[in-house]
Amino acid sequence: MKRVNIYNTQPEAYHAIFAVEKYVKESNLQPLLEELIRTRVSQINGCAYCIQMHTQSALKAGESTERLFALTAWRESTMFTSEERAALALCDEITHISNSGVSDDTYTSAQRYFSDEKMAQIITLISLMNLWNRIAVSTKIA
């Protein structure tokens, strides 16, 4: 079944999203952390298109295949730093926000590693990836 192509139908929507992408790319987030977050959100949302795109970007940025393979089980893995684990916990809870929001424990843990500026950048990135995933999955972009 053919679905709407938002880029062709409503290019203004994509221009707005790309403005947020520009903000994220100009932020000072570490490229590997950015790609871990993008990939993890996409895994949770089942967005094959974005998983493929961001695992490839992560590999190009120097990420290991072993860590990418372990990303779905990051809580049980010892391959991720405490800082990455704090960001991934935030990522999981924001992506599943309807379950119970973002817990104070998760938020406080992330604040141990990230300044308010970085927290804002990470929350924006997670929210942006959820938007991209919802567009890709609902319109079957891949």
Score class of each variant (00 low, 15 high):
Ala13Glu: 05
Lys2Pro: 09
Asn8Arg: 11
Cys50Gly: 03
Val4Cys: 06
Met1Ala: 15
Val24Gly: 09
Tyr23Arg: 08
Arg40Met: 11
Leu36His: 01
Thr39Arg: 02
Ala16Ser: 10
Gln30Ser: 13
Glu26Ile: 00
Glu26Asp: 13
Pro11Tyr: 04
Asn45Gly: 06
Ala13Thr: 14
Glu12Met: 09
Tyr23Glu: 14
Tyr23Pro: 02
Asn28Pro: 05
Glu35Gln: 10
Lys2Ser: 12
Asn45Pro: 00
Tyr23Ile: 08
Met1Ile: 07
Asn28Phe: 11
Ala16Gln: 04
Gln10Lys: 08
Lys22Arg: 13
Ile37Ser: 08
Tyr49Arg: 04
Phe18Trp: 05
Phe18Met: 11
Cys47Ile: 02
Asn28Val: 08
Leu29His: 05
Glu34Val: 05
Asn45Ala: 05
Glu34Cys: 13
Glu35Leu: 11
Leu33Glu: 06
Glu21Pro: 04
Glu35His: 07
Ser42Asp: 08
Asn45Leu: 05
Thr39Ser: 14
Ala19Phe: 02
Glu35Cys: 11
Ile17Val: 11
Gln10Val: 14
Val24Tyr: 03
Val24Ser: 11
Val24Asp: 13
Ile6Lys: 08
Asn28Asp: 15
Glu26His: 06
Thr39Lys: 02
Glu21Cys: 13
Lys25Ser: 15
Ala19Cys: 02
Glu35Tyr: 06
Asn5Asp: 12
Tyr14Phe: 14
Pro31Arg: 03
Met1Leu: 12
Ile17Thr: 02
Lys25Met: 15
Glu34His: 04
Ile37Val: 14
Leu29Ala: 10
Glu12Trp: 01
Leu32Ala: 08
Val24Trp: 00
Thr39Asn: 11
Val20Ser: 09
Arg38Cys: 14
Arg40Pro: 04
Ala16Asn: 01
Leu36Val: 02
Gly46Phe: 03
Ala16Cys: 10
Phe18His: 03
Glu26Ala: 11
Tyr14Asn: 08
Glu12Ile: 07
Lys2Tyr: 06
Tyr14Arg: 00
Glu21Lys: 10
Phe18Pro: 00
Glu35Trp: 01
His15Glu: 13
Val24Ile: 15
Ser42Gly: 09
Ile37Arg: 05
Ser27Arg: 02
Glu26Thr: 02
Arg40Thr: 03
Phe18Lys: 07
Tyr14Lys: 02
Glu12Lys: 03
Leu33Pro: 00
His15Trp: 09
Leu32Glu: 09
Gly46Thr: 00
Met1Arg: 11
Asn5Met: 04
Arg3Leu: 10
Asn45Gln: 05
Tyr49His: 13
Leu36Ile: 06
Tyr7Ile: 02
Cys50Ser: 08
Pro11Glu: 11
Gly46Val: 01
Arg40Cys: 10
Thr9Arg: 10
Tyr23Lys: 08
Ser42Thr: 01
Thr39Phe: 08
Thr9Cys: 12
Ala19Asp: 10
Gln43Val: 05
Ile6Trp: 12
Thr39Gln: 04
Gly46Pro: 01
